[in-house]
């Protein structure tokens, strides 16, 4: 900060601007430094470790640069980790499965979330805030505990099986827990609020006279819905879908607690490589591949958010 001079109202404009610029500099620099150090820099480290070899020791990866005996500085880049990802079908399957699960779960969230958001815009105004609060409330309670709740419902002697057995609809318990079905259910359940909120935000801003105009011109309600409501809510659809899809691709807790041994997802593979196999280079290579996969949707989301802020 420059030394504060007297602040008479009749201060020359350029001096005021100059001081503002300096003050602004300090405001922007602090978060930039923090995020640059703790969020930006780690990605360079990830990229570096993904190109090294696993060694026994701490930290368990090799140096890229080393001095050879004849005084030559050697740079050794190890691409074997990435080749492993490509060749071992475990990783490729996990990637494809993650994308499939995330995409399907996003679609189901949209199918459940859209009518909910639309319904909230149609109720009395005094009811809207409480209804929105009810959507947000589960999001404020522990993610882990909400997933845990499904274990009690889905397991062999759980709520659903007991109910169905009691009603005589089935003779023996259905295998619901540790299946792909449970993974879909868990992800849809956990991420549904992220779909409803952006949808509600765009739908509530919609001008209702447009629907009246469509009706006046002889448009049936269903066709007005497809031709007016849906296109106008496209920003909410895109934002909600990205908010569900991107984190769901790398989800760990849901496949770990609700999924079976077959429901491989890449977040769980990364976790296993890191914690169980202690293979940091392969774990970081998985992270690099996952980032490469997500960079387009993340940038898309960012562009979108900027546009929304300006609007």
């Amino acid at each position: 900060m420059p030394s504060p001079s007297s602040s008479k109202p009749a201060k020359p404009l350029h001096a005021l601007r100059e001081r503002l610029r300096l003050g602004r500099g300090t405001v922007a620099v602090v978060p930039l430094l923090w995020l640059g150090l703790f969020f930006g820099l780690p990605f360079l480290i990830i990229a570096r470790i993904s190109l090294s070899e696993v060694v026994i020791g701490l930290p368990p990866y090799s140096d890229l640069l080393s001095w050879a005996e004849d005084g030559m500085l050697q740079l050794r880049l190890n691409f074997a980790n990435f080749m492993l990802l490509w060749q071992d079908s475990l990783y490729l399957d996990a990637f494809i499965n993650s994308l499939r699960v995330a995409a399907t779960a996003t679609l189901i969230c949209l199918l459940i979330g859209y009518p909910m958001a639309l319904g909230i815009t149609r109720v009395r105004e005094s009811l809207r805030v409480p209804l929105l609060m009810l959507v947000i409330l589960p999001f404020w309670t522990s993610f882990l505990i909400r997933i845990y709740a499904w274990i009690g419902i889905l397991k062999g002697n759980g709520l659903i099986n007991n109910l169905l057995l009691g009603l005589g609809l089935i003779d023996e318990p259905l295998a619901l827990l540790h299946t792909d079905f449970a993974v879909y259910l868990g992800i849809v359940y956990a991420y549904l609020p992220f779909m409803v909120l952006p949808l509600y935000a765009t739908l509530s801003r919609m001008d209702h006279s447009l629907l009246e105009a469509a009706a006046d011109l002889g448009c049936r309600p269903l066709s007005a819905f497809w031709r007016v409501t849906v296109p106008l809510s496209l920003p909410g659809i895109v934002a909600g879908s990205l908010l569900v899809f991107v984190p769901a691709v790398g989800e760990f807790v849901v496949p770990d607690l609700l999924g079976g041994p077959d429901s491989l997802m890449i977040g769980k593979v990364l976790w296993t490589e890191f914690f169980n196999n202690r293979d940091w280079p392969v774990a970081t290579a998985v992270a690099v591949a996952l980032l490469a996969l997500l960079v387009v949707p993340v940038l898309l989301f960012e562009r979108f958010r900027e546009k929304e802020q300006d609007a």
Binding site: V249, V298, E302, E306
Partner: peptide, 13 residues
């Protein structure tokens, strides 16, 4: 970008 990215970045990363 660094404000937007953590909102969607998977936890494992």
């Amino acid at each position: 970008l660094m404000v937007g990215a953590p909102l969607v970045m998977p936890d494992v990363i």
